[in-house]
Design a protein around this nucleic acid. Structure first.
Lengths: 249, 249
DNA sequence: CGTTCCGTTGACGGCATTCAAGGTCCGTGG
DNA sequence: CCACGGACCTTGAATGCCGTCAACGGAACG
């Protein structure tokens, strides 16, 4: 597939790893995906990649970096709804929604690929199984959203943070981006607060508690998990919502 | 379409109203949907319709009644993630997820139709546009989830309740189930608390405040909105996330 | 070498929870 | 007919988790 803008890029491979953790993706489907990429772009940390309300012509596949979906409220508060890592589509839902009600912002320098909506549309016309695989990815986002609702709705402050860090560990493990019990999560404590519905001050205290209780360390954008079992219990983390079963979809 | 189990049922018509608020659904697609229904079932208030973790063979379309998706936590707390009204698919996502990580429970007596996964699969093989319309419905659920994350994460207690009651008004209006500024929402204050991440005691106080400020009345499962503009402002409610535009999808 | 962003910690305050008691409504059965 | 129980609503008082305000330290950067 020499025409691909992505030949050998690890970003697309990570998407395939995510998909193959849940179903079979055959070589032809892989080629279709590779050939669907129109171009690769970059952006700097702090930039908005996709602006809320803007009409969108293509879906964005994150190749490298950390990204979040968020919205700002009238009083200046911010809520991060989801974090995205390499291999994630940032806005596959834009294919049918046409515009988004939230921003998509880069937390780090990022590289991403564009898949024009027209190509996705062609996939829905010609490749039913691949269509279902893409649909499935958006259902995964929704399941992650639901878990976040539970976190901010009912979990304690430590629980929320612990849960988020458990989730990111598992999601990064799927795409081969963990290093033993450690992984990179280049966020500030303020970002973590916006993702968990807390304040940065309180996040700071809860991180200290998690450290003191030898559950995990979060420092300099690096997470080290010291006691996975106890952490999971504190977070009430059950990875069932990530649907890590290879089933025909 | 005399073979349909649903000939003339208002439940399926409500699904069509939802879809037609966002795109065109032609007569052939309407027939395909009608013919996809295998059977109609009923259930009593308080019953679980779909149990978390169970393998699922068909999708459920709510014809009548009020339903919620929820999960219970270890300490007995409950979080409701979404409310469903007639015309909503309760578990279209089960088509690809195969099982759900949350329960689906009846808040009132309900009637619902079953669409076997096999039929949905056939739609994805033969009817790309109808497939996109179904996919779109699941994306709408995700958008509603995101709005709930913002509510429980960052909105005040009054704001959360106000927002939920704004949302239900608009969603019920789409399917023709409002009566001027009033609509039926047969929930207890405890249910409302589980949906907003509050306690029933506090919900009670906030409802009193909304009443005292002449914004809305919630009593006996009936909502009456007295000042939509001010309520919208209190809730910071912007219906953009419901994607009420007729666009080719 | 000042500026800025981030992390850390303490004191205080407030919103929501918890605990508790009493009220209403309604279906059930004596 | 009415006593009774149960589910839900209402309200007050006390508690507590998390937020706000504030000050300071360190690291990165221009």
């Amino acid at each position: 597939m020499g025409t691909s803008a992505l030949a050998g890029d690890p970003g697309l491979d990570r998407l395939l790893m995510k998909m193959r953790a849940r179903d079979i993706v055959d070589a032809r489907e892989e080629d279709v995906l590779r050939d669907s990429v129109a171009e690769v772009r970059e952006s700097r940390a702090g930039r908005i990649i996709i602006r809320a309300g803007a009409m969108i012509g293509g879906c964005t596949l994150l190749l490298d970096g950390l990204v979040c979906r968020y919205r700002d409220l009238a009083d200046g508060q911010r809520q991060i709804m989801e974090l995205h890592v390499a291999g994630d589509f940032l806005d596959l839902h834009s294919f049918l929604l046409k515009r988004l009600e939230h921003h998509v912002g880069a937390m780090t320098p990022v590289r991403y690929a564009i898949v024009p909506h027209q190509r996705v549309r062609e996939i829905t016309e010609r490749h039913p199984h691949l269509t279902r695989l893409l649909w499935f990815q958006t259902l995964l986002d929704a399941a992650i959203h639901r878990e976040r609702i539970i976190s901010v709705g009912r979990r304690s402050a430590v629980g929320r943070i612990a849960h988020l860090l458990c989730e990111m560990f598992v999601r990064l493990e799927i795409v081969g981006m963990t290093d033993g019990n450690r992984y990179a999560l280049p966020l500030t404590q303020g970002d973590l607060a916006d993702a968990t519905g807390l304040t940065s001050v309180h996040v700071n205290r809860m991180l200290k508690r998690l450290r003191d209780e030898a559950l995990l360390t979060f420092r300099g954008g690096q997470v080290a998990i010291h006691d996975w079992d106890r952490l999971q219990r504190v977070a009430e983390f059950d990875p069932a919502y990530l649907y890590l079963e290879r089933l025909p979809r």
